[in-house]
Design a protein around this nucleic acid. Structure first.
Lengths: 163, 163
DNA sequence: CTTGACCTGTTATGATATTACATACATAGA
DNA sequence: TCTATGTATGTAATATCATAACAGGTCAAG
């Protein structure tokens, strides 16, 4: 169990170095637990995503990897990203065709994403109530939901303040 | 006002010819009202989308158009689709990079999409409660939502029944 | 019947993503 | 230790999705 069960949102001021380091530590625990390998490329991709609370395209990640001596073909990035998403270490933002590090690694969560259209920061919000509401609507139609994508575009607190 | 303010979901049995014809009639009213033109390409694209309650990729639509003598370059399809989305006659399904005809043309609505992973049918569900719940979560973080995308993947009633 | 706005078409290119296959690495069992 | 096996990485080639820029056509207001 962690001492930080509810880390603040990406919008809030925080010690980002600690936030990123903590995420990596958790990622190592998670992967070890699952019996899968957090290889150098995978780990590096997670680190890259953790540098900022933004979503990065696969090709952005790829460029970074290539510059550091990893392979420079798309599958290198896509495979690492897929691995991270599959193990809950990162999320795919459909609206942006991009990826962002999970800010709640190791915690059961079903996030909604809040995407600032001004600064591109992506935060995870609690989506359980929204999902429950949707579940209701769907059930009324006889539809069995398996996976839900909830993404909102708008303005983060900082960008609302700025003119 | 229509005699069918609450058409059934795409999953329900319905007279599809009537459903599609009705949608076109409404589309004509909407565009006339807005002072924009439902030109042949645009109208034809809407008809194509209305043929089934599925999402079609821009290039699928384009192929149909080209076969019918319209232009065969991507912008032809993208522009018509953009027009339809802009005027609420169709929706973009982010998850599929595809488009589907709106089943509630002319009604104020903020839909969630239910996508059957088996038969690919797309239905619109009521998303107002889910949006309200999300609005709550977002407000707590100081985030001002402008647009929300809600898409669920799962099994439609028919495909649940089938083994 | 001209003008201006908008629509359609085309070329070209950019951005995102996957398939297929070859090579290298880790590790468990002989 | 050796080697077989599964898994990971690297590369080439290609598929899929999307937009920019510009030329020509259509239509309706003046």
């Amino acid at each position: 169990m962690s001492a930080h069960p509810h880390p603040g949102p990406a919008f809030a001021q925080h010690n980002h170095a600690h936030c990123a380091h903590d995420a990596l530590t958790r990622a190592e625990a998670i992967t070890k637990e699952a019996g899968v390998r957090l290889t150098p490329v995978r780990r590096r991709v997670l680190e890259i995503l953790l540098e900022e609370h933004k979503a990065l395209g696969a090709y952005d990640v790829l460029a970074r990897l290539a510059a550091e001596g990893f392979g420079n073909q798309p599958p290198v990035a896509y495979r690492a990203l897929e691995f991270l998403v599959e193990h809950g270490l990162a999320h795919r933002i459909q609206r942006l065709n991009a990826f962002t590090a999970c800010t709640h690694i190791g915690q059961a969560h079903a996030p909604a994403f809040l995407i600032c259209r001004s600064c591109a920061t992506v935060a995870e919000a609690e989506a359980a109530p929204a999902r429950a509401a949707l579940e209701q609507s769907a059930a009324a139609l006889g539809f069995a939901i398996e996976r839900t994508t909830i993404e909102a575009l708008g303005l983060c607190p900082a960008c609302r303040g700025a003119t």
